[in-house]
Amino acid sequence: MAATDLRVGGIASMSSCDWPGELVATFFCQGCSWDCPYCHNQSLRPATGKAETQIPWDDLVAFLKQRGRLLDGVVFSGGEPTLQSALPDAMRGVRDLGFKIGLHTAGVKPERLIPLLPLVDWIGFDIKGPFSLYDKITRIPNSAENVKKSLQHLLESGVSHQIRTTVYPPLLDEAALLEMKADLAAFGITDYTLQPYQERPLV
């Protein structure tokens, strides 16, 4: 699909926290197949958002052309951006404008992540918790299996990344965090980021 088909439900015009060390614009892509109870972007969960909140691709391109000298890159966030087939073309279009490409993903669909790996400079990979709790957190059966596959592909790709977890206390207590630490250590991961849950809606 073409970049013009990308469904974007919001934008952060300038961010220093969505990609550590880079000043970026963040495009919030519409749609997520998971149902995490603490999601702070609930409006992005439906595959098709409200017409009045969707931002046409041409408007995003025009914005980037105006802000080009101020930004290092663009982060595609969500929702879960990898669910959209227009994402690869959108990434190529943004790179052609001279920007670095970042991606936020939870590893929902490894088959969608694999072709994106050569297109990105950095990935923020969200680990929801220990793998034994994924079904409870995402409310989707067997969701951890795809995450494990996606994580392995990311590590093998050599793409720069940050592994991070939002700590939502009702679901992640100290025992769960210790179990998650062991899960990640099995992948050779000892460097990861814990970030406190905050009520931070997109709009």
Rank of each mutant, 00 (worst) to 15 (best):
L44Q: 12
L44M: 15
L44F: 10
R45Y: 08
P46F: 10
P46C: 14
P46D: 13
A47K: 13
T48R: 15
G49N: 12
K50S: 04
A51C: 05
T53S: 15
Q54H: 10
Q54I: 14
I55F: 05
D58A: 14
A62M: 01
L64G: 14
K65P: 02
K65D: 09
R67L: 05
R69Q: 15
L71D: 08
L71I: 09
G73F: 01
V74E: 04
V75E: 05
G78H: 11
G79N: 11
P81C: 09
T82C: 06
T82Y: 03
S85P: 13
L87T: 07
L87C: 04
D89S: 14
D89H: 15
R95I: 04
R95A: 13
L97I: 11
F99L: 07
F99W: 05
K100P: 05
I101W: 06
G102A: 11
L103A: 08
G107L: 02
P110Y: 00
E111H: 12
E111I: 01
R112N: 13
L113N: 01
L116S: 03
L119F: 02
L119P: 05
L119M: 11
L119G: 06
V120S: 07
V120A: 09
W122K: 05
W122G: 10
I123T: 02
I123R: 08
G124H: 03
D126A: 08
I127T: 13
I127K: 00
K128P: 00
P130N: 10
S132E: 14
L133G: 02
L133H: 08
I137P: 05
I137M: 09
T138R: 00
R139M: 01
I140C: 02
